[in-house]
Design a protein around this nucleic acid. Structure first.
Length: 116
DNA sequence: AACATGACGCGTC
DNA sequence: GGACGCGCCATGT
């Protein structure tokens, strides 16, 4: 908002770290909040490249259709389902109800946490 | 330099 | 819902 103090990827990681437990967000929404509208694909790349020491809750990010983006029957898919369910999120065939679990960041969060 | 590839999104049919 | 097409752009070949 005042300057690009951090790299685009670092901003993405930051935003993802703000998603509360038990809730999910989407690639596109994360991109918007990170100041990268239209860059959903970049978010997926950022998650893949995220250093493990960040302990990022990558599994809280799904696609805009409310579905897990990994193909079913892949290790990643299985793991994501387990992690989501461990936070009491209902997952049916890779689908999550965004109207129930979708993260709705409030103004306070945006103003005090996203002042790049 | 040129082309292909994504943990994507959106409009259209 | 599903299947395309197109936009997006950093990376890899």
């Amino acid at each position: 908002m005042y300057q690009q103090a951090t790299s685009p990827m670092a901003r993405i990681w930051h935003v993802v770290s703000l998603i509360p437990s038990g809730q999910v967000s989407t690639y596109g929404k994360i991109a918007d909040l990170a100041g990268l509208p239209g860059r959903a694909r970049y978010v997926s790349r950022a998650l893949k490249l995220a250093p493990t020491h960040l302990n990022l809750s990558w599994y809280r990010v799904i696609n805009s259709q409310g579905k897990i983006s990994f193909p079913e029957n892949t290790a990643n898919f299985i793991e994501q389902v387990q992690l989501l369910r461990s936070e009491n999120i209902k997952v049916n065939r890779g689908r999550i109800d965004l109207s129930i679990y979708g993260w709705q960041p409030d103004l306070t969060t945006l103003m005090f946490e996203l002042t790049y």
